[in-house]
Amino acid sequence: MTRCSCAWTPRCAPRFAVLLALLAGAPAQAHTIVGDRVFPATLTIDDPGVNDELALPAFSYLTGSNFDGTPGPISYSLGWEYSKTLTPSLAFSLGSAFNWQRRPSAQGWSNLETQLKYVFWEDAKSESIIAGALSEDWASTGSPQSASLPSDPFTTLTAKLYAGKGFGDASLDWARPFAVTGEVDYAAPTRAANGDGSLNPSALTYGATLQYSLLYRNSHVEEVPEAFRKLIPAFEAYFTTPVANVAPTAPGNFPAHTTTGVFGPSLYYVGAYFEVGVMAQIPVNRASGSHVGALAVLDFFLDDIFPDTLGKPLFAAAAGAHY
């Protein structure tokens, strides 16, 4: 197989899957409050809580790389995700994205993705939380196969595990603004192979963020200048490894089992009703991309904008139970 310079063909599907997986990290976010800790809606992975929020838009930009070392397609994505709490611990979300690229030109909607997310455990005192989710990427709900950048013609089920921990209980004041979050996913296509014989691999996706909350520092450790009080700088990383049903590596292409991913610094502004986040995404290897890309999101806190209607859980909404 020669380098993947086509807009989209089944043979190129793994390459597009990699790019879209990296781009698709953006739409699934929300913010969470556990005890004194505000976990922002991060860009590479989802935060560990459930929320009433609307991420719109979530933008991603990344330049791919060809096996021969030349730059690949320049890919863009504009996504959205709406998340609704059913109970204070359970949320349903719905999202999609419009993707387009240059070199060569192509465009199309990705499939609709739905998700049920449940918070198994949280402890306000230790600012800790663990959650899990099941999501489904619905086959052919995006652009048709005749589009230049069609959606996947198969459904993918993904099991997800999330965790978050703030260090407000640390004995050292300098450590208290720090927090970490993590996510591990296992994505399994419901169809092993396509009509042309190409395989749809299962993949393990994993990522983490390290955050330093000036919001927390200002409220709990030491007042900071007003201009910085609502900022949370962070460092994030996000990887995908094909683990099953992986096709043999074709000549002239990246190894089929190659782990792809991005890492980089990010910055979040957490307002009363919305959050803005930006990140420089640096490819971890040539299979992931050739240049530094970017992620950005505008996230509306519907629980704060509509606290008595759209922003509260459908069932068991109670004062003091808001996230």
Partner: peptide, 29 residues
């Protein structure tokens, strides 16, 4: 939803949302 959310985000008076400590006297730390 975008239009509604944006309208509320820009038109609200600050009467909603989570109350986070902004500053204090005596000051934090």
């Amino acid at each position: 939803h975008f239009a509604v959310a944006l309208a509320f985000a820009t038109a609200s008076t600050g009467a909603f949302a989570h109350a986070l400590l902004d500053h204090a006297s005596p000051g934090v730390g």
